[in-house]
Structures are given as structure tokens and as C-alpha cells.
Design a binder for these strands. Structure first.
Length: 261
DNA sequence: TCGATTTGACCGGG
DNA sequence: CCCGGTCAAATCGA
């Protein structure tokens, strides 16, 4: 981001960016108008695609430093200056005993053997890097071997995308319980735990009872599991809208599961 | 067919 | 120059 801002963009691409920005503003206005009219769902969808296209184009112009002027082309593809190494700010490091989903859509873009490390480091970027210009990346590396495996995940930059996160809490009207809906998270874990089974349910839920000191997993392949979960029960309402806190709770619950299963 | 992953090449910072 | 982060062509697979 800051790297993009410091780039001295030439006049041509500056004009292109201005033109794209104007187009994007028009599309924004059109989308707002269409959203008022409930009968034009498909038109809204189209406008959203146009908006993504504008955002993508602007993102490319902002982040690339490829010369627009035609200069002597090298024989093979020259990628000098094709990316800027990010500043190491906004780092979050997590260590987990298994590879857990964190509710965001990631796309693997690289793997490197690291000096003096037993396992390679894997590089992921946000799926919405190009359609929404989200700069979030993460690195995952196994740092401890198999009897008691440990994975280190390093998150770099915050998500700026508006991904429809699967880790959304759905409040149950039942006064004694809260239903959490985080399909991808739990079903992926169930897949791990039941690899021998040919079928896994596509949807799962966890019910966190507020009165008894129990954590229950309700799923086709699971029976009732209980453990201490009172630490989380009291916090759920207050952090229902804080995604980061939710993710932390999900991680804790996963750790809890791993202790049980 | 098209999105995701793999993997060797390329690049920049130290 | 080395190491680690990123790119992008090739490949995979749903």
C-alpha cells in the first residue's frame, strides 16, 4: 500500500487511473440505485462485476511498476520490479497443533525450503487479491514433527476484502444455547478426523451451552462430546461482531476438540 | 473448462 | 552473493 503510494506514476497511467476511478464512481451510483429496486437483482450482480473489474484494474495500475512506454523487450520475460517486498508490519503469529481454517479464502502461491528448517514454508494470499485488492497474506510452516506436530502461521496485513466469511455466528433464539455456524471450519476438521468415511456432512454446527459446563458438537458423524467450555460461554454475546475475537474463540474451541478427539 | 496448486525462475534486501 | 518472498507457466482436478 505505502509502496504503491510512493511510486511515481507516469502521466499516462495517472490519466487511466483517473478515468477508471470516475467509471467506478458511476458504477457505484448505479449500484446504489439498482439496490433500491428489488426487481433488478441480476442487474445489480452485473454492476458488482463491473465494480470488481474497475477495482481490479486500479489495483493493477497501483501495484505494478511495469513501464507503459515500449522499451527494448528482453528475450525472456523480464520480471524485474514486478513486485514490491512488503514492510514487515502488521504481523500476527499463531502456533497451532493442526492446520486449522481461519474463515478466510486463501490461495497458495508459493512454497520455499527454508535454511535450517526441516519443513518447507508455504505462502498464501487472499483469494480476493485481484477482485478486491486485498493485500492479506499468510505463511504456514510445520515447526515440530509428527508425534506432536506444531504449525506456525504468520499473518501479514489485514484483510480489506468483504469476503462472506463462513465463520459467522448465528444467534439462536433458545435462551440456553447459541448456535455457531462455521461450516467450512468444522466440516474440514470432521473430514480430517473421518478420512476413512466416504461421505462427510456439508454442514455442521456447534452448540455452546451457556448453563451446563459443556461443549457439544452435533453432526451426523459425531455423538455428543462434552468438555469445559464455560470460558467462552460468557463472552459470546459481547464479541459477536468482532471477527478477530471470534476467530480466536474458534481456534480455542478447535484446540479443545483436538484435546477430546 | 476454469480455478487451484505446484514448482522453478526471478527479484530485492541484507 | 545468499536467502526468502513472489511470479507465472505447467499441471491438476472437480
Amino acid at each position: 500500500m505505502e509502496a504503491a503510494a510512493s511510486i511515481s506514476v507516469d502521466k499516462g497511467s495517472e490519466r487511466v487511473m483517473e478515468e477508471l476511478s470516475q467509471g467506478r464512481r458511476y458504477a457505484d451510483q448505479l449500484l446504489a440505485m439498482l439496490r433500491d429496486d428489488t426487481s433488478s437483482a441480476s442487474s445489480s450482480c452485473l454492476v458488482e462485476k463491473i465494480l470488481h473489474s474497475f477495482t481490479h484494474s486500479l489495483s493493477i495500475l497501483l501495484t505494478s511498476q511495469l513501464p507503459l512506454k515500449s522499451e527494448a523487450l528482453p528475450i525472456h520475460k523480464d520480471r524485474r520490479g514486478c513486485y514490491k517486498r512488503r514492510k514487515t508490519s502488521e504481523i500476527l503469529i499463531k502456533e497451532t497443533t493442526s492446520l486449522v481454517e481461519d474463515g478466510h479464502a486463501w490461495r497458495k502461491y508459493g512454497q520455499k525450503v527454508i535454511l535450517n528448517a526441516k519443513h518447507p514454508r508455504n505462502y498464501y494470499r487472499c483469494t480476493h487479491k485481484f477482485d478486491q485488492g486485498c493485500q492479506a497474506t499468510k505463511q504456514v510452516q510445520k515447526i515440530q514433527d509428527d508425534p506432536f506436530p506444531l504449525f506456525k502461521t504468520t499473518y501479514l496485513s489485514h484483510h480489506t476484502c468483504s469476503s462472506n466469511s463462513p465463520n459467522q455466528i448465528i444467534m439462536d433464539t433458545d435462551s440456553n444455547s447459541i448456535t455457531w455456524s462455521f461450516d467450512s471450519l468444522l466440516s474440514s476438521m470432521i473430514k480430517r478426523e473421518n478420512t476413512s468415511k466416504s461421505e462427510t456432512s456439508s454442514s455442521s454446527s456447534v452448540v455452546l451451552d451457556t448453563s451446563p459446563d459443556q461443549l457439544r458438537c452435533i453432526d451426523n458423524n459425531f455423538s455428543v462430546i462434552s468438555s469445559s467450555a464455560s470460558d467462552y460461554a460468557g463472552d459470546v454475546y459481547s464479541c459477536a461482531t468482532a471477527t478477530e475475537t471470534n476467530n480466536m474463540i474458534f481456534d480455542d474451541i478447535l484446540a479443545l476438540y483436538e484435546g477430546i478427539i
